[in-house]
Simulated scan of single mutants.
Amino acid sequence: MSVNALYTDLSGYYDLMCVDIDYPAQSKAIERFHQIFGNDGTTHLDLACGTGPHLRHFIDAGYQSHGLDINQPMLDIAAKRCPEAHFSLQDMSDFAVDGPIDLITCFLYSIHYNAEIEKLKACIDSVHRALTPGGLFCFNAVDKEKIDNDLFVKHTAKQGSDLFTFRSGWHYRGQGEKQSLRLSIEKANAETTQVWNDEHPMVAVSFVELIALLAPHFEVHVFEHDYETIKPWDKLSGNAIFVCVKA
Score class of each variant (00 low, 15 high):
residue 92 M to I: 01
residue 101 I to Y: 02
residue 180 S to F: 13
residue 201 P to R: 06
residue 32 R to T: 12
residue 132 T to W: 00
residue 61 A to M: 07
residue 230 I to V: 11
residue 37 F to G: 01
residue 7 Y to V: 15
residue 197 N to G: 13
residue 198 D to H: 03
residue 208 V to H: 04
residue 110 S to T: 14
residue 8 T to Q: 13
residue 226 D to P: 06
residue 158 K to L: 08
residue 201 P to H: 09
residue 236 L to T: 02
residue 67 G to P: 14
residue 193 T to C: 15
residue 223 F to A: 03
residue 167 R to M: 05
residue 213 L to R: 05
residue 147 I to G: 09
residue 160 G to D: 04
residue 246 K to V: 04
residue 62 G to P: 06
residue 15 D to A: 01
residue 89 L to G: 05
residue 78 A to G: 11
residue 194 Q to H: 10
residue 224 E to F: 09
residue 68 L to A: 04
residue 105 T to D: 14
residue 163 L to D: 10
residue 28 K to D: 11
residue 60 D to R: 06
residue 201 P to D: 11
residue 152 F to M: 07
residue 45 L to P: 09
residue 50 G to E: 07
residue 81 R to T: 04
residue 3 V to T: 13
residue 228 E to P: 06
residue 4 N to G: 08
residue 67 G to A: 11
residue 108 L to S: 01
residue 198 D to K: 00
residue 36 I to L: 09
residue 91 D to Y: 02
residue 79 A to C: 02
residue 87 F to L: 14
residue 145 E to P: 05
residue 120 L to T: 00
residue 173 R to G: 11
residue 119 K to L: 14
residue 20 D to H: 11
residue 126 S to C: 12
residue 61 A to H: 09
residue 95 F to Q: 02
residue 95 F to H: 06
residue 58 F to Y: 15
residue 85 A to V: 07
residue 9 D to I: 02
residue 76 D to L: 04
residue 233 W to M: 04
residue 11 S to P: 06
residue 165 T to P: 05
residue 41 G to I: 02
residue 146 K to Y: 00
residue 193 T to L: 15
residue 197 N to M: 06
residue 30 I to C: 13
residue 176 G to Y: 14
residue 35 Q to H: 12
residue 39 N to T: 00
residue 158 K to N: 10
residue 165 T to V: 14
residue 91 D to C: 01
residue 117 I to E: 12
residue 234 D to G: 01
residue 38 G to T: 08
residue 244 C to W: 03
residue 156 T to K: 10
residue 22 D to Y: 11
residue 234 D to F: 00
residue 94 D to R: 12
residue 158 K to S: 08
residue 134 G to W: 07
